[in-house]
Design a protein around this nucleic acid. Structure first.
Lengths: 367, 367
DNA sequence: TTGTAGGCGTTATCAC
DNA sequence: GTGATAACGCCTACAA
C-alpha cells in the first residue's frame, strides 16, 4: 500500500507513463475509492457535490477505468467477439466493417477471430473469446455444430447472435439473408427467359448458406416442372489449379447448360473469368451477390444483391440489446435481397438447344 | 477464502460452469499456486517430478490460465491491436486477414479497431487499445501525426509496426510497398507507349500512400521531359454523387489525357465504370493495385500489383519479434510491386493528339 | 450518502 | 526447489 502510494505520488507531475488509477482519483478528490467507483458507474447514491468533485478529479488526472481489472472482477468485458470464416472474403469484409462500426459506436471494442479450418479450431476460438470475458459474440457459424457444442453461450450464457447463417437447435438470435427468396427470383427469372438447363456453381454447396441457395434453386425448378439434374450443380475445388473447369463441364454436356447461377461473389468472379476466357457470350448468367464491376461488364451482370453491412449492423444491434438485458424469445431476422436485372440474366437460350432438350438428351447422351 | 474453496469443491464433478483456477490445480496437485504458476510459465526452477504432477492436474482439470488476470498483473496482454482505416476496403481486408492469421498462429488474439474520421478519434482508438494492455500494435496511420502524438508506443513503449504507410519521425518499424518504383514503372510504361498526356486519378491524393504515388508519377514525367500538368491530377470526391466526373474532365480538356493511372483499386473501379459507360476504348489505363476481374475485362487491365497479405504478414512477424524482445534499429521494409501488362496499358495514343500536343495546348486552351 | 474489507486469478518478492 | 503473501485495479458486500 505504501509502496504503491509512493509510486503514485511520484507520478503526479512526472512523465505520466503510468496511468492514473481509481486510488489517484480518490486521493485527489478526497474521497474513498468506492465513491469514485460509484461515480464512474453512474450509481445514483452519491451526492451531486461529491460527484462533481470526483468528476473534476477524473478530468484533471485523465483517469480512465482499467477495462481488464473491471472484467476480472465482473466477469464481463466491454468487448465483443466476432467469429468469422475469412475476413478477406468481400462479403465478410463488408460485414466485419459494419460490426466494427456498430461496436465502436457503442463504446466497446471488437475482437476478431477467424474460425480456423476445423470444428475443433472453431470451438477453441470461441472458447478463447469467452475466456477473455467478451460481453457478447457475433458468430458466423462455420464448421462447428453449435447445438451440440455445449458452449456457455446463448440462453444462460454470454449473449450471441449468429450472422449470415443460422445455428439450428441453439436458441439464439440470428440474422440471415433471405436466401430462398433471392435464389427463387434468380431461378424463376432465367426460367421465364426460356431456360430449362440452368447450372448452379459454387464452393462448399453442402454448407450454409449455400446449401439454402441450392435448395431454393432446386425447389424453383421443381415448381416449374423442370427436372433437377445433378450434373448441373457443380462445386469449385478449393484450389483454382484444378485443370478441368467445373463450368466447362456443364457447358459441354450433351444437353448443356444455357444459363448459370453463381452461388456467391467469389464463384461469380470465376464464372465471369471463364466465360470471358472462352468467349462465351451466349450463356445467361445471374450472380448471387453483387460485386464491384458487375455493372460495367459486357453484358452487365444481373445479380441478387445482398447487403452485408446491414447483416453486420443488424446482428450487432441485436446483440447489444441482449447484452443490455433485453429478454424475449430468440429472433430470426431475415433480410431481403434485391434482384437487379442488368443484362447477363436476360440472355435467351439458343433456339435449338431449348426446344429439343428432352429428345436431345435421350439420344445423344453417350454414357 | 472458505467461500471460494467451498464453491470450488462443489465444482469438481458438477456442471463445470466455473472455469478451474490456479488454486484448483494447486490443491489437486498438492503444491502451492506459485509452483503451478512456474510450471505454466516454463520456469526452469521446478523439479521434473513436481512439474509432471502439476501438468497432470492441469490436464485433468482442463485448466487454462485467465488472460485477463495475467494481463492485469503483468500489464501485457496476449492480444495484438490493429488500427486500420477501413476493413471494408479490399486492400485492408486482405491485409487484415493476413494479420489475423499470423496473430492466431502465434496463439494470440487480434483486436481490430477502425481509426475513425478524425485525428482525435484515431488517437482515442490507439489509447483504448493501449488501455487494454495489448502487447503490440499494427497501425495503418491515417489522420494522426504519430511523431507528435506523444503516445507511449514504439521505443520505450508498446511495440508498434506501421503498415502500408510510414510514420515519419517516430522510430518504429514500418512495412510498406515500394510505391515509387511501382508508379514509376506504370508511368514509364505509358510514356514508352507514346503517351504524354497521362492523367492520375484517386481519392485522398494528399495523404499516404497515394501521396508517394503522385510524387513518383510526377518524377517520372519529369525524367522523361514531360511537363507536369495539375489539371491531369484529379481527386475523387468522397461521395460518388458528384455530378461532374473527375475523369470526364481530364478526357475533355482541350489537350485531353490519352492515358490514365488510377491510384488504387477503388479508383480503378470508378475508372473502369466510367470508361465503360462512356464507351471509351481508346484510353490507355493502368491500375495501381490489382482487383478481381481486372484480367477478364475488355481489354484486360494492366496493373501494378501489390501484395496486401504480404504486407500484413510481414508487419505482424516483425511485431511479434519485437514483442519477444528483439532489439535493433527501426526497420523500414519495402515490399516490391509486380507490373502486369495485360492490355489496357498498351493502348497507343491517338495519332493526332500525341503529335500536336504542345501546339494544340497553347492554341486551343480557352482559359 | 459514504467508507472498509475482501476477493477476482494471476505474477512477483521474498523468505525457507 | 518451494511456498506464504502482497500486489495488479476494480467492484461487491456490509457497516457506519
Amino acid at each position: 500500500m505504501t509502496a504503491r502510494a509512493q509510486r503514485r505520488g511520484e507520478r503526479h507531475e512526472g512523465g505520466g507513463a503510468t496511468a492514473p488509477t481509481i486510488h489517484d482519483v480518490a486521493r485527489d478528490a478526497g474521497v474513498s475509492i468506492k465513491t469514485v467507483s460509484r461515480v464512474v458507474n453512474d450509481d445514483p447514491a452519491v451526492r451531486p457535490a461529491t460527484q462533481v468533485r470526483v468528476l473534476r478529479s477524473i478530468e484533471a488526472l485523465g483517469y480512465r477505468p482499467n477495462p481488464l481489472a473491471r472484467s476480472l472482477r465482473t466477469g464481463r468485458d466491454e468487448a465483443i467477439g466476432l467469429v468469422v470464416e475469412s475476413i478477406g472474403d468481400p462479403f465478410f469484409a463488408a460485414m466485419t466493417e459494419a460490426v466494427e462500426e456498430a461496436v465502436r459506436e457503442a463504446g466497446q471494442f471488437l475482437i476478431v477471430a477467424s474460425a480456423g479450418s476445423s470444428a475443433d479450431e472453431e470451438r477453441a476460438v470461441v472458447l478463447g473469446l469467452l475466456r477473455r470475458s467478451v460481453g457478447g459474440l457475433v458468430i458466423v457459424p462455420c464448421l462447428l455444430d453449435y447445438a451440440r457444442a455445449r458452449l456457455p453461450i446463448g440462453a444462460g450464457g454470454v449473449p450471441v447472435v449468429f450472422a449470415d447463417r443460422p445455428a439450428p437447435g441453439l436458441g439464439a438470435d440470428s440474422v440471415t439473408v433471405d436466401n430462398l427468396a433471392g435464389v427463387r427470383q434468380a431461378t424463376a427469372h432465367l426460367i421465364a427467359n426460356g431456360h430449362r438447363r440452368i447450372a448452379f456453381v459454387g464452393m462448399g454447396l453442402d454448407r450454409f448458406p449455400l446449401r439454402d441457395r441450392v435448395a431454393g434453386y432446386r425447389a424453383t425448378l421443381g415448381a416449374a416442372g423442370i427436372p433437377y439434374d445433378d450434373d448441373l450443380v457443380v462445386s469449385h475445388a478449393r484450389d483454382r489449379l484444378e485443370p478441368s473447369s467445373p463450368l466447362g463441364k456443364v457447358l459441354s454436356l450433351a444437353d448443356p447448360a444455357t444459363a448459370v447461377i453463381a452461388a456467391n461473389a467469389v464463384a461469380s468472379i470465376e464464372v465471369v473469368s471463364e466465360l470471358h476466357r472462352t468467349g462465351r457470350t451466349d450463356v445467361a448468367f445471374v450472380s448471387f451477390d453483387d460485386f464491384p464491376i458487375a455493372d460495367s461488364l459486357t453484358p452487365p451482370v444481373t445479380v441478387v444483391r445482398q447487403d452485408p453491412a446491414l447483416v453486420g449492423r443488424t446482428a450487432t444491434d441485436l446483440l447489444l440489446r441482449r447484452m443490455r438485458g433485453e429478454a424475449g424469445r430468440p429472433r430470426r431476422v431475415q433480410l431481403p435481397t434485391l434482384f437487379l436485372p442488368r443484362g447477363s440474366g436476360e440472355i435467351p437460350p439458343p433456339k435449338r438447344a431449348s426446344r429439343t432438350r428432352t429428345r436431345t438428351r435421350r439420344e445423344e447422351r453417350p454414357r
